[in-house]
Write a protein that binds this DNA or RNA. Structure first.
Length: 476
DNA sequence: GAGTTTGAAACT
DNA sequence: CAGTTTCAAACTC
């Protein structure tokens, strides 16, 4: 009974949101956040002619612009939401639909790979409905990695209809949604290299992108997949989150608690020479983490924590202030603009709720990467994954609580957990040294969409509505 | 908005 | 594996 009540509450909320024509939620859904493998999976389904379920149709189908329907329905939450909206007339089926979608999602290749990447993040706890799974995932060390860079999850209220990509990007960033969903501006890479943020993030390029000769589109699915494979063969971690949380000092996340950046680190480390690790050129900085022993940077002044371990940002969000000169500080402040915005939003759960779409997006994005053969370093790239967990852990599932931006920013999965994940999913042979500097080529920030309240609610819904999450079950 | 700087990604 | 080139984002003006 309790469960039902909760479900009902969530459903109601979702419906309400979906009913808002211009809700950010919808906007978010319009975004493409495809998983490269998703299409393939979908194709498979089509070929098999097995899926007649409406939910299938709702799958994220990039390149299928539909003004009313989400441009990119995230296979997971997005789909669910979508389904809900559609099913609004038939509440009875609503749940069912959601379920089916979730299941489909699970069926995605990437998802299938146990504990794989972002996707997992998104759904890792899906089963939470079946609390068992969720806890299991967490306990098993599902690595929630957070790509700070994007994980920064600055997303929220994204306007996708902007014309100039650059402007858009800037605006978005200024608005705090910057990296939620990628928009690239590639000219020569055809968006088939990691240079391309979209490609690196595992999403297809879409409208907001201003790329040229773009091959990163559903039409060229084969090419994209092939390229991806190639890149992965070269570096299995190419599409994995770059930032991971280290085992040390990973405090339980609490509403009023702020984790220190020091708990997260860039896997490969940066190689900055001129930026002093104070600009976004620096992947560590961009990811909101301090530099570590893995970094080969020169003159490191990373506000989040220097290579030498000094100047680590503390809870107040003013990293290493004392050691920073004015210009540095200024730069830092600038870079924190997004977070601040985010923070604001977070502090206003009500407003944030509708904006979740992005959140939904990113996690999905990563899903694709988990190739069956090479399990994505299953780091989940959910920026606030921990936050989510926290909520659940603390029994405040459906309640969206404001989270300190920094906290979000830095919440990642413990690095030491990685092995477990790998163990679960990947064959020993493919083991990757996460900390190896040379094993660079770790994927860029995948969406780190953080954890917007809305996302949480959506997630929650999924969790509750989906009794079982196949994908979580490692295929062995 | 154009041009520069920067460092990751890709290549040799 | 190291050095070089290419690339696109980040940044500056």
């Amino acid at each position: 009974m309790k469960v039902l009540s909760l479900d009902w509450l969530l459903l109601t909320m979702l419906l309400y949101v979906s009913a808002q024509p211009d809700s950010n939620l919808h906007r978010g859904f319009r975004r493409r956040c495809l998983d490269f493998e998703m299409l393939a999976a979908r194709r498979k389904n089509l070929d098999g002619g097995s899926t007649t379920n409406s939910s299938t149709d709702n799958k994220l189908v990039p390149g299928k612009p539909d003004s009313d329907s989400p441009r990119c329905i995230v296979p997971g939450i997005g789909l669910h939401l979508n389904a809900l909206a559609i099913a609004s007339r038939d509440n009875k089926n609503m749940k069912l639909e959601t379920l089916s979608s979730g299941t489909q999602k699970l069926s995605f290749p990437s998802l299938n790979s146990p504990r794989t990447g972002g996707a997992e993040t998104a759904y890792e706890s899906l089963p939470s409905a079946s609390t068992e799974r969720e806890s299991d995932a967490v306990e098993n060390g599902v690595q929630l990695a957070e790509d700070a860079s994007q994980a920064s999850a600055y997303l929220v209220n994204e306007e996708f209809n902007q014309n100039s990509p650059k402007k858009k990007r800037r605006r978005l960033e200024q608005a705090g949604e910057g990296e939620s969903c990628k928009r690239c501006n590639c000219k020569k890479s055809k968006c088939l290299k990691l240079y391309c943020e979209c490609f690196a993030a595992g999403v297809y390029c879409i409208e907001p992108c201003s790329c040229q000769d773009c091959f990163n589109k559903p039409i060229h699915e084969d090419t994209v997949l092939a390229t991806r494979k190639q890149i992965e063969s070269r570096n299995p971690l190419a599409f994995a989150p770059k930032v991971i949380r280290t085992s040390d000092s990973v405090p339980e996340v609490r509403d009023d608690l702020i984790t220190t950046p020091s708990s997260a680190r860039h896997k490969r480390g940066c190689n900055c020479k001129k930026s002093n690790c104070l600009k976004k050129y620096c992947e560590c900085f961009q990811g909101g983490v301090g530099c570590s022993i893995n970094c080969r940077c020169e003159g490191c002044k990373n506000a989040f924590g220097r290579k030498d371990g000094s100047a680590i940002v503390e809870t107040d969000g003013e990293p290493g202030e004392e050691e920073m000169d004015p210009s540095e500080k200024n730069a830092l402040d600038k870079n924190f603009e997004k977070p601040d915005i985010l923070n604001n939003e977070e502090q206003n759960p009500a407003s944030a709720l509708p904006t979740t779409p992005l959140q939904l997006c990113r996690p999905l994005v990563q899903l694709p990467f988990s190739s069956k053969s090479k399990p994505p370093r299953s780091f989940i790239a959910i920026g606030s994954s921990s936050a989510l967990y926290t909520g659940q852990r603390y029994g405040k599932p459906s309640i969206i609580r404001p989270q300190n931006i920094i906290e979000k920013h830095f919440q990642t999965i413990a690095e030491d957990e990685t092995p477990e994940i790998l163990r679960g999913n990947s064959s020993p042979g493919t083991g990757i040294k996460t900390s190896s500097p040379n094993s660079k080529r770790i994927s860029p920030p995948q969406c780190e969409l953080g954890s917007t309240p809305g996302g949480r609610s959506g997630r929650k819904l999924i969790l509750q509505s989906i009794p079982s999450f196949p994908s979580l079950t490692p295929k062995h």
